[in-house]
């Protein structure tokens, strides 16, 4: 881990993500990182955000990452229920933001969650484009994050474009849906290099440009002069993240294999108890 000692990568990444959010828009909670970034942003940086508890429901809740209880969170906090039509109308009207965690992203900011290899004969069939094409044709800001910055995930060209980046993908699209920022475990990247290619914006504390370039599948555009260091999380940022995620669901995204399996089971067994301790039943389901 190249990160400087004293920092936890999850907290550095979530804080960097939170500082990108602003304005009065819906923010979807699909992953623990995405929902914690939205929560931290609302508490510290962007008080007008309307944070959701699941991909599609519960406007104006305080997210609490769990494995299965997002819809229950909407109820106990009496969040405002939404429909899928509300979500896509907000996307088309540019009143929606989401942090997308793609399997691959390329130098143009094209993203892939569909397949590795050719679509017709995939080496690995992933999940399918889901709602990414809607985001990359309508939102004035699109946000991506990756926790395993490597030659497999940050590539010259994605195997399949589930989401449209810059370059030729923009031909019929104009600026709406163009990639805005990528936060990884190594740094923060923008898409304002030559012809809209990926450029280094800042590197996390302790990370060098050489390391990042070694783990990137194309030559990165680099700003002239000294590369800024990512502003690390403040003690207040860290406190808010830890309080909002007592089960440490966020850590699952950084784990794999038996370690992840063990953590997973522990969270699943404990989440109802923690949930009820944090939020007593006040919604209409509990009455």
């Amino acid at each position: 881990m190249p990160l400087a000692p004293g920092f936890n990568i999850d907290e550095v990444v979530i804080t960097a993500m939170a500082r990108q959010l602003h304005g009065e828009v819906l923010v979807s909670s699909v992953t623990a990182f995405g929902s914690l970034a939205a929560h931290l942003a609302k508490r510290r940086y962007a008080p007008d955000l309307a944070v959701l508890s699941t991909p599609e429901s519960g406007m104006d809740v305080t997210p609490m990452p769990t494995l299965t209880l997002g819809q229950f969170l909407t109820d106990v906090q009496q969040g405002i229920p939404l429909t899928m039509e509300d979500i896509f109308d907000a996307i088309f009207r540019d009143r929606f933001r989401i942090w997308i965690n793609p399997s691959q992203i390329d130098q143009w900011g094209n993203t892939n969650i569909t397949c590795i290899g050719d679509w017709y004969h995939p080496k690995v069939a992933l999940v399918g484009a889901r709602g990414i094409p809607e985001d990359t044709s309508h939102l004035s800001e699109t946000f991506y994050y990756l926790l395993n910055h490597s030659l497999r995930s940050v590539v010259a060209q994605v195997d399949f474009r589930s989401g449209a980046g810059n370059g030729e993908s923009r031909a019929f699209l104009g600026r709406f849906g163009a990639p805005t920022v990528l936060v990884t475990d190594l740094g923060v990247f923008s898409f304002d290099g030559p012809e809209g290619r990926m450029a280094v914006r800042s590197l996390h504390p302790g990370v060098t440009l050489e390391e990042v370039q070694e783990r990137t599948g194309f030559p990165l555009a680099v700003p002239s002069g000294k590369i800024p260091e990512t502003d690390p999380p403040s003690p207040e940022d860290i406190r808010i993240i830890r309080e909002a995620d007592p089960l440490e669901v966020r850590k699952l995204e950084l784990m794999s294999g038996p370690e992840a399996a063990e953590k997973f089971v522990a969270i699943y067994e404990r989440e109802r108890q923690t949930f009820h301790a944090t939020y007593p039943r006040v919604g209409k389901w509990g009455r």
């Binding site: 990359t136 044709s137 589930s162 449209a164 923009r170 699209l173």
Partner: peptide, 12 residues
Amino acid sequence: THATLGTDVLKV
């Protein structure tokens, strides 16, 4: 819709 413009979904 504009959705899928600029993506490979439109190709396959």
